[in-house]
Design a protein around this nucleic acid. Structure first.
Lengths: 230, 230
DNA sequence: CCATTTATGTACCTTGCGGTTAATTTGTCA
DNA sequence: TGACAAATTAACCGCAAGGTACATAAATGG
């Protein structure tokens, strides 16, 4: 059947380079796309293998089984997001500007990380059982909270922010509309139309969200949007 | 076990009542739970059949195939939610109280409809392709928007609400945190702990959300929460 | 330059599960 | 009352898809 040297019909790749890192990465890239698209049970190992430049065998060699691959994918997207958060520096901004910047960055980060969003949705369907197993992920997300806490502390110290302002709650709030804005786009559009998702409307929306948070956090802040008829 | 007449080993339920409606409902109830728990590809028809008091054959008899069953489930949970929204009457309340009531009701509705939340998440993973096929669902959700529009109109007419206040945007906003609060509980807890999900903290959270929306919509509204240290 | 480990390719096995076939009972109405 | 449709049961089927066995080429290093 598969002759090794004499080229009798069935070829056997008789010469190849060892490149574990590249092979691993290749698999991860494809798998991320497929899991994000179809979920854990929906994704197909054969299909993933087909799209890689390697074979199904290697998936099992490096990741053990489907769940192992899924976990690695999950850690990958979380790590990517974390890296982005780390890049963000608001230490030099005064509290109000810093808070505004953090909210805007979170909103943008979600819009531009659809794979992350989908994998988090999928993970929530699984009650985060794979995320909980991860060593790296749970502690990965401190960074954004630290930044928010710093800003809150500075804001309160300067007498600008209300005393009850809570970093975790702010993060929850910011995440909620940033996440929902992407995650539920399909069903929301189906029920209520696509009006809110146009480019101009999206930046308006962000403006208003920032405005809303500031109105609650910053003492004496006067909302700037929602004043004029749409 | 329950032999019919001649107890020749293999039982065959030889006596049964025709009850199409009940059988259909039985299947739907179990299927809703299973699809909500495991998703479209994750749910197992054999397992669903096992839990019903009927057989797998009947699933195919009434719903055609797995997707057909899934679509019916989807329509079911949307219809249930709609029915609840219809029960809500805020026409008698003055605008600010009415808006507060609508936000609270939406928040509560999401907390107490976990199947709905999960199925919407799942549907978004599928880019709402099944929801779009539905005849009933897309137009089902007008009710809540109508109510919000009425409240907004009254609020503006009374000079209480800012002119830019938009019903659709308000609904998007209210939905976003109400939905996220339930949908992402698993991953959020894993990353940041369960602090926000205690009973007392949840009602605080709702208070603050209402406060925040009112602060942006109602002219001259003074935020009542976030004033005292946590 | 041989032995051993690491990395890779091909072919295959097993079974879980979506879907079907065929028969049988229940209800209806001419 | 008997033919016909509707509802239901039990048994079966095919194959897709997760996972493995086995052989072998590339690196490593003593």
């Amino acid at each position: 059947m598969d002759a090794s040297e004499g080229e009798t019909g069935r070829k056997r790749k008789t010469s190849w380079k060892k490149d574990p890192a590249a092979v691993r990465q290749d698999i991860l890239t494809i798998a991320t796309r497929e899991f994000a698209a179809h979920g854990l049970s929906g994704a197909n190992i054969n299909e993933i293998a087909r799209q890689t430049s390697t074979s199904k065998r290697m998936i099992y060699y490096y990741f053990g089984d489907k769940e192992g691959l899924y976990c690695s994918v999950l850690e990958g997207v979380y790590a990517t997001l974390r890296a982005r958060e780390d890049d963000l520096d608001v230490a030099g901004l005064e509290p109000v500007a810093a808070l505004r910047r953090l909210i805007e960055a979170t909103f943008e980060a979600h819009v531009t990380a659809p794979h992350f969003i989908r994998l988090v949705m999928i993970e929530n369907i699984h009650n985060a059982e794979y995320l909980r197993k991860s060593e790296s992920v749970p502690k990965l997300n401190r960074s954004i909270i630290d930044k928010l806490e710093d800003v809150c502390a500075r804001g309160k110290a300067a007498g600008l922010f209300r005393e009850g302002t809570d970093a975790l709650e702010l993060h929850w709030l910011t995440s909620s509309f940033s996440f929902y804005n992407v995650s539920n786009r399909a069903t929301f559009s189906t029920s209520f139309g696509t009006a809110l998702y146009s480019k101009t409307r999206q930046s308006q929306l962000l403006e208003r969200l920032v405005d809303m948070v500031l109105a609650t956090v910053v003492i004496g802040y006067e909302p700037k949007t929602w004043n004029d008829p749409v």
